[in-house]
Computed example of a mutant assay.
Amino acid sequence: MRFTKDHEWVEVDGDVATIGITNYAAQQLGDVVFVDLPSAGKAVKAGEELAVVESVKAASDVYAPVSGEVVEANGEVAEAPETVNAMPEAGGWFVKLKLADPAELDALMDRDAYEAFLATL
């Protein structure tokens, strides 16, 4: 699993990246009440808005940590947004992307680096 400073995570299986928000992000948001996900087929570039998460506290953009084409959106989080709080780094994933450039993963943090980053916040 790889992480961004914006608290997104990426897990890669072959040429498909599963993307979600971290446990830290889910805790900061509070109770998630709505998730707006992109449709399959949408192309995104690293750093662009990928999804929107609304909680009882605020609405927040989720950015694509890597570039690619959306191959699947997680309908479960759209129908049951509380899944994001319950399992942010598992069943609460947002989308699966077909990677455009696997080398982009090299710019992301591993778990140890992410944990060190969190300690500075």
Rank of each mutant, 00 (worst) to 15 (best):
R2Y: 15
T4L: 06
T4D: 11
K5F: 00
D6N: 07
E8A: 09
E8G: 04
E8N: 01
E8S: 11
W9P: 07
V10Q: 06
V10W: 02
V12L: 05
G14V: 07
G14K: 01
V16F: 03
A17G: 03
I19V: 15
I19K: 01
I19R: 07
I21R: 05
I21M: 08
T22I: 08
N23P: 03
Y24Q: 13
Y24A: 13
A25R: 03
A26E: 13
A26D: 13
Q28D: 15
L29P: 08
L29M: 14
G30P: 01
D31K: 02
V32W: 10
V32Q: 09
V33L: 07
V33I: 14
F34D: 14
V35R: 00
D36F: 00
D36M: 07
L37K: 04
S39T: 12
A40T: 12
A40C: 03
A40Q: 06
G41W: 00
K42G: 03
K42C: 04
K42P: 03
A43F: 08
A43M: 08
A43W: 00
A46G: 13
A46M: 02
G47I: 04
E49Q: 15
L50C: 11
A51R: 02
V52P: 04
V52L: 13
V53I: 15
E54T: 11
E54S: 07
S55F: 01
S55M: 02
K57C: 02
A58S: 14
A59K: 04
A59Q: 01
A59T: 12
S60K: 01
D61L: 02
V62A: 10
V62M: 05
Y63S: 05
A64R: 04
A64M: 05
A64D: 04
P65E: 05
P65N: 09
P65S: 07
P65F: 05
V66L: 04
S67H: 06
S67E: 12
G68F: 12
G68C: 11
V70W: 11
V71P: 09
E72G: 01
N74S: 09
N74Q: 06
G75L: 07
V77Y: 12
A78C: 00
A80C: 06
A80L: 08
A80P: 06
P81A: 09
E82V: 08
V84N: 05
V84R: 03
N85S: 12
A86N: 11
M87R: 13
E89S: 06
A90V: 07
A90F: 14
G92M: 11
W93Y: 14
F94K: 01
V95Y: 09
K96P: 10
L97T: 07
L97E: 08
K98W: 09
L99I: 14
A100W: 06
D101W: 05
P102L: 03
L108P: 03
M109D: 04
M109G: 06
M109N: 05
D110S: 04
D110N: 13
D112Y: 04
E115K: 09
E115L: 13
F117I: 08
F117S: 00
F117P: 10
L121A: 09
L121P: 02
